[in-house]
Protein backbone atom coordinates (compact mmCIF):
# COMPACT_ATOMS: atom_id res chain seq x y z
CA UNK A 1 0.00 0.00 0.00
CA UNK A 2 1.28 3.41 -0.91
CA UNK A 3 0.66 6.64 0.95
CA UNK A 4 -2.34 8.55 -0.48
CA UNK A 5 -3.51 5.45 -2.39
CA UNK A 6 -7.23 4.96 -2.99
CA UNK A 7 -7.93 1.56 -1.44
CA UNK A 8 -11.66 1.70 -2.03
CA UNK A 9 -13.97 3.79 -4.16
CA UNK A 10 -17.72 3.65 -3.78
CA UNK A 11 -20.19 5.73 -5.79
CA UNK A 12 -22.91 6.73 -3.30
CA UNK A 13 -25.07 8.47 -5.90
CA UNK A 14 -24.62 10.30 -9.22
CA UNK A 15 -22.49 13.05 -7.72
CA UNK A 16 -21.17 11.73 -4.41
CA UNK A 17 -18.21 9.35 -4.04
CA UNK A 18 -16.71 7.71 -0.98
CA UNK A 19 -12.96 7.11 -0.92
CA UNK A 20 -10.92 5.13 1.57
CA UNK A 21 -7.31 6.32 1.41
CA UNK A 22 -4.13 4.92 2.91
CA UNK A 23 -2.76 7.70 5.11
CA UNK A 24 -1.47 6.34 8.43
CA UNK A 25 -0.16 9.64 9.85
CA UNK A 26 -3.59 11.24 9.53
CA UNK A 27 -5.48 8.13 10.65
CA UNK A 28 -3.52 7.87 13.90
CA UNK A 29 -4.41 11.34 15.19
CA UNK A 30 -7.70 12.34 13.50
CA UNK A 31 -10.57 13.56 15.65
CA UNK A 32 -14.22 14.38 14.93
CA UNK A 33 -14.66 17.69 13.14
CA UNK A 34 -11.22 17.78 11.53
CA UNK A 35 -10.44 17.89 7.83
CA UNK A 36 -7.72 17.23 5.27
CA UNK A 37 -6.48 19.26 2.32
CA UNK A 38 -6.41 17.28 -0.93
CA UNK A 39 -4.66 17.95 -4.21
CA UNK A 40 -5.20 15.81 -7.26
CA UNK A 41 -2.76 17.12 -9.85
CA UNK A 42 0.11 19.49 -10.47
CA UNK A 43 -1.41 22.97 -10.86
CA UNK A 44 -4.37 21.69 -8.87
CA UNK A 45 -6.19 23.50 -6.10
CA UNK A 46 -5.83 22.72 -2.42
CA UNK A 47 -9.30 21.47 -1.48
CA UNK A 48 -10.43 21.10 2.16
CA UNK A 49 -12.46 17.92 2.75
CA UNK A 50 -13.95 16.72 6.04
CA UNK A 51 -12.63 13.50 7.58
CA UNK A 52 -15.66 11.20 7.67
CA UNK A 53 -13.97 8.21 9.27
CA UNK A 54 -10.54 6.79 10.08
CA UNK A 55 -8.94 3.58 11.27
CA UNK A 56 -5.63 4.02 13.08
CA UNK A 57 -4.86 0.29 12.97
CA UNK A 58 -5.36 -0.03 9.22
CA UNK A 59 -3.88 3.42 8.58
CA UNK A 60 -6.88 4.48 6.51
CA UNK A 61 -9.06 7.57 6.29
CA UNK A 62 -12.46 7.99 4.64
CA UNK A 63 -13.57 11.07 2.73
CA UNK A 64 -16.82 11.64 0.87
CA UNK A 65 -16.75 14.08 -2.01
CA UNK A 66 -19.50 15.70 -4.04
CA UNK A 67 -18.72 16.78 -7.61
CA UNK A 68 -19.18 20.54 -7.60
CA UNK A 69 -16.24 22.19 -9.32
CA UNK A 70 -13.36 21.15 -11.55
CA UNK A 71 -11.26 19.77 -8.69
CA UNK A 72 -14.03 17.63 -7.23
CA UNK A 73 -15.01 16.34 -10.70
CA UNK A 74 -11.38 15.33 -11.15
CA UNK A 75 -11.17 13.69 -7.69
CA UNK A 76 -14.32 11.73 -8.33
CA UNK A 77 -12.93 10.41 -11.63
CA UNK A 78 -10.05 8.76 -9.73
CA UNK A 79 -10.12 4.97 -9.54
CA UNK A 80 -9.17 2.44 -6.94
CA UNK A 81 -5.37 2.20 -6.89
CA UNK A 82 -4.88 5.80 -8.00
CA UNK A 83 -3.01 8.23 -5.76
CA UNK A 84 -4.03 11.63 -4.52
CA UNK A 85 -1.06 13.91 -5.08
CA UNK A 86 -1.24 15.48 -1.62
CA UNK A 87 -3.14 14.67 1.54
CA UNK A 88 -2.45 16.97 4.50
CA UNK A 89 -4.01 16.66 7.90
CA UNK A 90 -5.63 16.30 10.28
CA UNK A 91 -6.39 20.04 10.24
CA UNK A 92 -8.64 22.30 12.28
CA UNK A 93 -9.77 22.21 15.89
CA UNK A 94 -11.68 19.04 16.81
CA UNK A 95 -15.27 19.47 17.94
CA UNK A 96 -15.63 19.78 21.71
CA UNK A 97 -17.12 16.37 22.41
CA UNK A 98 -18.75 16.06 25.83
CA UNK A 99 -21.92 14.74 27.34
CA UNK A 100 -24.39 17.50 26.56
CA UNK A 101 -27.40 15.29 27.36
CA UNK A 102 -29.55 15.14 24.27
CA UNK A 103 -28.07 16.42 21.01
CA UNK A 104 -29.45 17.02 17.54
CA UNK A 105 -27.05 16.19 14.72
CA UNK A 106 -28.24 17.71 11.48
CA UNK A 107 -26.74 16.99 8.06
CA UNK A 108 -27.84 18.38 4.73
CA UNK A 109 -26.84 16.57 1.51
CA UNK A 110 -23.17 15.66 1.59
CA UNK A 111 -23.16 17.36 5.01
CA UNK A 112 -24.66 14.11 6.33
CA UNK A 113 -21.29 12.48 5.74
CA UNK A 114 -19.48 15.38 7.36
CA UNK A 115 -21.61 15.30 10.49
CA UNK A 116 -21.35 11.51 10.84
CA UNK A 117 -18.05 11.44 12.83
CA UNK A 118 -19.47 14.04 15.21
CA UNK A 119 -22.60 11.95 15.80
CA UNK A 120 -20.38 8.92 16.38
CA UNK A 121 -18.18 10.73 18.92
CA UNK A 122 -21.18 12.28 20.69
CA UNK A 123 -22.82 8.87 20.96
CA UNK A 124 -19.63 7.39 22.40
CA UNK A 125 -19.54 10.24 24.94
CA UNK A 126 -22.94 9.15 26.25
CA UNK A 127 -25.29 11.60 24.55
CA UNK A 128 -28.75 10.76 23.34
CA UNK A 129 -28.22 11.42 19.64
CA UNK A 130 -31.08 12.49 17.38
CA UNK A 131 -29.94 12.64 13.77
CA UNK A 132 -31.79 14.52 11.07
CA UNK A 133 -30.70 13.73 7.52
CA UNK A 134 -31.95 16.20 4.94
CA UNK A 135 -31.71 16.05 1.16
CA UNK A 136 -33.48 17.34 -1.91
CA UNK A 137 -34.59 13.89 -2.98
CA UNK A 138 -34.25 10.22 -2.03
CA UNK A 139 -31.05 9.46 -3.98
CA UNK A 140 -29.20 12.19 -2.12
CA UNK A 141 -29.83 10.77 1.35
CA UNK A 142 -26.48 9.11 2.11
CA UNK A 143 -24.98 7.14 4.99
CA UNK A 144 -28.37 6.38 6.55
CA UNK A 145 -27.28 2.97 7.87
CA UNK A 146 -24.08 4.41 9.38
CA UNK A 147 -26.03 7.22 11.01
CA UNK A 148 -28.55 4.77 12.44
CA UNK A 149 -25.63 2.87 13.96
CA UNK A 150 -24.55 5.89 16.01
CA UNK A 151 -27.91 7.54 16.71
CA UNK A 152 -30.79 6.86 19.08
CA UNK A 153 -33.23 8.30 16.60
CA UNK A 154 -32.59 8.82 12.87
CA UNK A 155 -34.96 10.97 10.88
CA UNK A 156 -34.47 11.32 7.13
CA UNK A 157 -36.38 14.00 5.25
CA UNK A 158 -36.55 15.14 1.63
CA UNK A 159 -37.74 18.34 0.01
CA UNK A 160 -39.87 16.41 -2.49
CA UNK A 161 -41.15 13.83 -0.02
CA UNK A 162 -39.62 10.95 -2.01
CA UNK A 163 -38.10 9.54 1.19
CA UNK A 164 -38.69 10.03 4.91
CA UNK A 165 -40.63 13.03 6.06
CA UNK A 166 -41.53 15.59 3.39
CA UNK A 167 -39.96 18.91 4.23
CA UNK A 168 -36.77 20.49 5.42
CA UNK A 169 -34.57 19.66 8.39
CA UNK A 170 -35.99 22.69 10.19
CA UNK A 171 -39.50 21.22 9.91
CA UNK A 172 -38.32 17.95 11.42
CA UNK A 173 -36.41 19.69 14.22
CA UNK A 174 -39.39 21.84 15.10
CA UNK A 175 -41.60 18.76 15.12
CA UNK A 176 -39.44 16.87 17.62
CA UNK A 177 -39.08 19.79 20.00
CA UNK A 178 -42.80 20.61 19.79
CA UNK A 179 -43.48 16.97 20.60
CA UNK A 180 -41.65 17.51 23.89
CA UNK A 181 -38.05 16.46 23.26
CA UNK A 182 -35.60 18.60 25.25
CA UNK A 183 -32.46 19.07 23.16
CA UNK A 184 -29.38 20.66 24.74
CA UNK A 185 -27.09 21.18 21.78
CA UNK A 186 -27.26 20.96 17.99
CA UNK A 187 -24.52 20.33 15.43
CA UNK A 188 -25.29 21.36 11.86
CA UNK A 189 -23.41 20.77 8.63
CA UNK A 190 -24.78 21.45 5.17
CA UNK A 191 -25.35 24.23 2.64
CA UNK A 192 -24.85 27.66 4.23
CA UNK A 193 -28.50 28.80 4.03
CA UNK A 194 -29.56 25.51 5.66
CA UNK A 195 -27.03 26.04 8.49
CA UNK A 196 -28.17 29.63 8.87
CA UNK A 197 -31.88 28.82 9.24
CA UNK A 198 -31.31 25.70 11.34
CA UNK A 199 -29.06 27.60 13.76
CA UNK A 200 -31.60 30.40 14.02
CA UNK A 201 -34.39 27.94 14.73
CA UNK A 202 -32.28 26.16 17.34
CA UNK A 203 -31.77 29.41 19.22
CA UNK A 204 -35.54 29.97 19.16
CA UNK A 205 -36.11 26.43 20.43
CA UNK A 206 -33.56 26.75 23.24
CA UNK A 207 -31.01 24.44 21.58
CA UNK A 208 -27.38 25.66 21.66
CA UNK A 209 -26.31 25.60 17.98
CA UNK A 210 -22.92 24.78 16.47
CA UNK A 211 -22.20 24.94 12.74
CA UNK A 212 -19.21 23.78 10.70
CA UNK A 213 -18.17 26.45 8.21
CA UNK A 214 -16.76 25.90 4.75
CA UNK A 215 -15.12 29.15 3.59
CA UNK A 216 -12.58 29.14 0.77
CA UNK A 217 -9.18 27.95 1.98
CA UNK A 218 -5.70 27.91 0.49
CA UNK A 219 -3.03 26.47 2.74
CA UNK A 220 -5.46 25.34 5.45
CA UNK A 221 -2.74 25.54 8.10
CA UNK A 222 -3.24 29.01 9.60
CA UNK A 223 -1.06 31.03 7.27
CA UNK A 224 -2.95 32.79 4.46
CA UNK A 225 -6.00 34.24 6.22
CA UNK A 226 -8.38 33.48 3.32
CA UNK A 227 -10.89 31.51 5.44
CA UNK A 228 -11.82 34.31 7.81
CA UNK A 229 -15.36 34.38 9.12
CA UNK A 230 -17.17 36.66 11.56
CA UNK A 231 -18.25 35.10 14.84
CA UNK A 232 -19.39 37.26 17.76
CA UNK A 233 -18.41 40.24 15.61
CA UNK A 234 -14.78 39.11 15.58
CA UNK A 235 -12.61 37.81 12.77
CA UNK A 236 -11.95 34.08 13.21
CA UNK A 237 -10.07 31.71 10.93
CA UNK A 238 -11.99 28.55 10.06
CA UNK A 239 -8.88 26.48 9.29
CA UNK A 240 -7.42 26.78 12.80
CA UNK A 241 -10.13 28.28 15.06
CA UNK A 242 -12.83 26.10 13.44
CA UNK A 243 -14.30 24.81 11.25
CA UNK A 244 -17.00 24.27 13.95
CA UNK A 245 -18.13 27.47 15.70
CA UNK A 246 -20.88 28.40 18.15
CA UNK A 247 -23.53 29.39 15.63
CA UNK A 248 -25.60 32.04 17.45
CA UNK A 249 -23.46 34.88 16.19
CA UNK A 250 -22.00 33.57 12.94
CA UNK A 251 -22.40 36.04 10.08
CA UNK A 252 -23.75 33.51 7.56
CA UNK A 253 -24.61 36.17 4.97
CA UNK A 254 -21.00 37.31 4.87
CA UNK A 255 -19.92 33.68 4.45
CA UNK A 256 -22.34 33.25 1.52
CA UNK A 257 -20.89 36.35 -0.15
CA UNK A 258 -17.28 35.34 0.44
CA UNK A 259 -17.78 31.77 -0.81
CA UNK A 260 -19.40 33.15 -3.99
CA UNK A 261 -16.36 35.25 -4.88
CA UNK A 262 -15.07 32.95 -7.62
CA UNK A 263 -18.35 31.50 -8.95
CA UNK A 264 -17.57 32.79 -12.46
CA UNK A 265 -14.06 31.30 -12.42
CA UNK A 266 -15.37 27.98 -11.07
CA UNK A 267 -17.84 27.78 -13.94
CA UNK A 268 -15.13 28.59 -16.46
CA UNK A 269 -12.83 25.90 -14.99
CA UNK A 270 -15.60 23.28 -15.14
CA UNK A 271 -16.40 24.17 -18.77
CA UNK A 272 -12.74 23.86 -19.78
CA UNK A 273 -12.46 20.57 -17.89
CA UNK A 274 -15.55 19.14 -19.55
CA UNK A 275 -14.34 20.26 -22.97
CA UNK A 276 -11.02 18.54 -22.36
CA UNK A 277 -12.78 15.49 -20.97
CA UNK A 278 -15.04 15.14 -24.01
CA UNK A 279 -12.11 15.62 -26.37
CA UNK A 280 -10.31 12.71 -24.74
CA UNK A 281 -13.41 10.55 -24.85
CA UNK A 282 -13.76 11.41 -28.52
CA UNK A 283 -10.28 10.13 -29.27
CA UNK A 284 -11.02 6.63 -28.00
Amino acid sequence: MRENEILLKEQLNDVVVKFVLYKPLVAQSAKAGQFVILRGAENGERVPVTLVDWDAKKGTITVIIQSIGKSTFMFNSFKQGDLFLNVLGPLGTPVDIQNYGTVAVVGGGVGIAEVYPIAKALKAAGNKVISILGARTKELVILEEEMKGVSDITLPCTDDGSYGQKGMVTDVLKGIVTAGEKINAGFVIGPIPMMKFTSKLMVELGVEPYASLNPIMLDGTGMCGCCRVSVEGKVRFACVDGPMFPARTIDFDELIRRTSEYKGEEKQAVQEYEKDHKCKIGLH
Binding site: N43, G44, E45, L218, C224, G225, C226, E266, A269
Partner: peptide, 23 residues
Protein backbone atom coordinates in the same frame (compact mmCIF):
# COMPACT_ATOMS: atom_id res chain seq x y z
CA UNK B 1 -4.47 39.70 3.14
CA UNK B 2 -1.05 39.97 1.51
CA UNK B 3 -0.45 36.37 2.64
CA UNK B 4 -3.47 35.15 0.69
CA UNK B 5 -2.82 37.31 -2.36
CA UNK B 6 0.85 36.28 -2.54
CA UNK B 7 0.10 32.61 -1.82
CA UNK B 8 -2.45 32.48 -4.62
CA UNK B 9 0.03 33.96 -7.07
CA UNK B 10 3.33 32.51 -5.92
CA UNK B 11 2.49 29.08 -4.54
CA UNK B 12 -0.67 28.31 -6.51
CA UNK B 13 0.36 30.17 -9.70
CA UNK B 14 -3.09 31.74 -9.90
CA UNK B 15 -1.93 34.28 -12.48
CA UNK B 16 -1.92 31.41 -15.00
CA UNK B 17 -5.61 30.55 -14.37
CA UNK B 18 -7.30 28.65 -16.06
CA UNK B 19 -4.10 26.71 -16.91
CA UNK B 20 -3.82 26.37 -13.14
CA UNK B 21 -6.89 25.75 -11.01
CA UNK B 22 -6.63 28.48 -8.36
CA UNK B 23 -8.16 31.81 -9.42
Amino acid sequence: SANEFLTRINLMQAYKFPQTDTP
